[in-house]
Design a protein around this nucleic acid. Structure first.
Lengths: 233, 233
DNA sequence: TGCACTATTTATCGATCGATAAATGATTAT
DNA sequence: ATAATCATTTATCGATCGATAAATAGTGCA
C-alpha cells in the first residue's frame, strides 16, 4: 500500500548508500521537512519523503531530538561561515557601500522560506542556539556597524555602543529582516527590487543616526552634512 | 493521582459555572496556553490548567480546531476594535504626533508575550486570518500613513501609494514590530524607553520618506525643510 | 423536599507518535 | 562461490493524541 511499486508487485530495489551520504541527505531533507511542517512533523512522514522506512532514521540519529539539533546547527551556522562581517570594517570603502554589500549578501543567504521558518520555529521554542544567534547579530554585526558609523562621523570608537545607538541599529536591521518575513512567511507582495529597499533603508538609517544622536555632540553635527550629502548618489 | 485533594481522599467540590462564563474562561486560558505551548499543545494539559477534565472542553467546542479558531478571533480582532487608525487622519494635529500616538497605543496592545506568540504561530501556519491581518495593516494603517504624509508634503493624496512608498512604510513598521519580537519572543534586552524608540523611528521614517521620494518631485524638496525642522523637538 | 435538567466526570476508543528488536537482503572480502 | 558484514525493512511496543458514550453530581424549580 505504501510503496506504489510494491503494491503493483514489482519489488523496489533496496538502495544502499554510504553512511556519510545518507546522513547528509537525511539532514538536508529533514531541514526542508521541518521547515514546512514544524518540529512536530512526524518521523514517518519524513521517512516517506526520504524514500526510506522510519526506523532507518534511528540508525543515524539516536533520537528525533538529535536529528533536529543537527538541523539547527546547519541552519544557524551556514550563513555565518563567511567573512561578511569582517568586510564591514574595511575602511578603504565608504560605509554606505559596505553596508549595502553586507545586507545584500546576508539577505541572499537568509531570505528563503526554509531558513526563515526554521529560524522562527526555533525562536518560538526559546532555544539556546536562537538566543546565541541574536547575541551574535548584536555583537558581530550591529556593534560593528555602530563602530564604523562612529568612525565615519568622527567620534570615538573605543567605548561600547550606547543603548540608544543599539536600538536604532536594531530597528534598522529589523526593518530589513521583516521584508524577508513578509515575502517568505506571509507570502505578501513586496517591492521586488530588494537592493533598492536595502539602499533606502541604509540611507534612512544613516540619516537617522546623525539626527537622533547628533543632539549630544557638536562634533556629529559638523560631520552630519558630509554624511547626508554622500547620501545623494 | 491527578488531583491532589482527591489523592488525599478529600473530595474536590465540583464547580458549576454558567455556560457563558465557562466558555469565556476556556477561550481566555486557551489563548495563554496555546501561546506558550503552540497549537500542538494537548487538550488534556489545557484542561488540567483549567481545573476541569478534558472531555468537558468538547461540551463547549465541537473540536480542538474550533477552540483554536476562537482564540484567533479574539487575538486578531481585539487590537483592532479601536479607532486608532481613524485618529491617524485627524489633520488638526501634526502628523508626527499622530504617528507617535498611534504606535504607542498600538504597541501597548500587541507588545506582549501572548499576542506576539499567537501571531507568529498562526503566521507560520499560513492561516487566512493572518494574511487578512497583514492586508489590514497595509490598507488601514500604512496606506493611511502614506496618504497623510503626502498631504503634509503637499503632494496629491488621490492615487494609491506607490510600491516604493509602501516599502518604506513597511520597513519602518517592521522595525518597530521587531522591537516587540526581540523583547517578548527572544527575551533579549531592549532600550527600555519604548516611546523614545518609537519617536526616533518616526523621525527617521519621515526624513527617509522625503529623501527617498523627493528625487521625483521638486515639490517635496521644498517641503522637506519644513518637515525636518519640526523633527528637532 | 424531591424531581428534572444539565454541567461535569469516568471510562474508553482508534489513530498516531517516537522508539526498539528481530528479520532480511545488498555489498564486500576471502 | 560463499560467508561475513551491515544497511535496510518488517513487526511491534507503550505513550499520548483528539474525540465519544455513559455515568455522576450540582443546581434550580415544583
Amino acid at each position: 500500500m505504501r510503496k506504489k511499486a510494491k503494491a503493483a508487485g514489482i519489488p523496489v530495489k533496496q538502495k544502499r548508500l554510504s553512511p556519510e551520504d545518507r546522513r547528509k541527505e537525511f539532514i538536508r531533507k529533514a531541514t526542508e521537512f521541518f521547515a514546512e511542517e514544524g518540529f512536530n512533523g512526524g518521523t514517518r512522514e519524513l521517512a516517506r519523503r526520504l524514500g526510506v522506512t522510519q526506523p532507518l532514521l534511528y540508525r543515524y540519529f539516536p533520537s528525533k531530538e538529535d536529528l533536529i539539533r543537527e538541523v539547527y546547527r546547519k541552519v544557524y551556522l551556514e550563513p555565518l561561515d563567511s567573512d561578511w562581517e569582517k568586510r564591514l570594517s574595511d575602511r578603504s570603502r565608504p560605509l554606505r557601500d559596505r553596508l549595502q554589500y553586507f545586507y545584500v549578501t546576508y539577505t541572499d543567504a537568509i531570505f528563503n522560506r526554509v531558513w526563515l521558518r526554521i529560524y522562527l520555529f526555533s525562536g518560538l521554542k526559546g532555544l539556546d542556539i536562537n538566543r546565541w544567534y541574536v547575541g551574535t547579530v548584536r555583537d558581530k554585526i550591529l556593534t560593528r556597524i555602530i563602530k564604523e558609523w562612529r568612525f565615519e562621523a568622527g567620534l570615538s570608537v573605543q567605548s561600547k555602543p550606547t543603548a540608544k545607538e543599539l536600538e536604532l541599529a536594531w530597528v534598522f536591521h529589523g526593518g530589513i529582516f521583516y521584508y524577508g518575513v513578509r515575502k517568505f512567511i506571509y507570502e505578501s507582495p513586496v517591492l521586488e527590487d530588494k537592493e533598492r529597499m536595502i539602499a533606502d533603508a541604509i540611507d534612512t538609517f544613516l540619516i537617522g543616526m546623525t539626527r537622533a544622536l547628533g543632539k549630544n555632540s557638536r562634533e556629529v553635527s559638523r560631520n552630519l552634512n558630509r554624511l547626508e550629502t554622500t547620501a545623494d548618489r
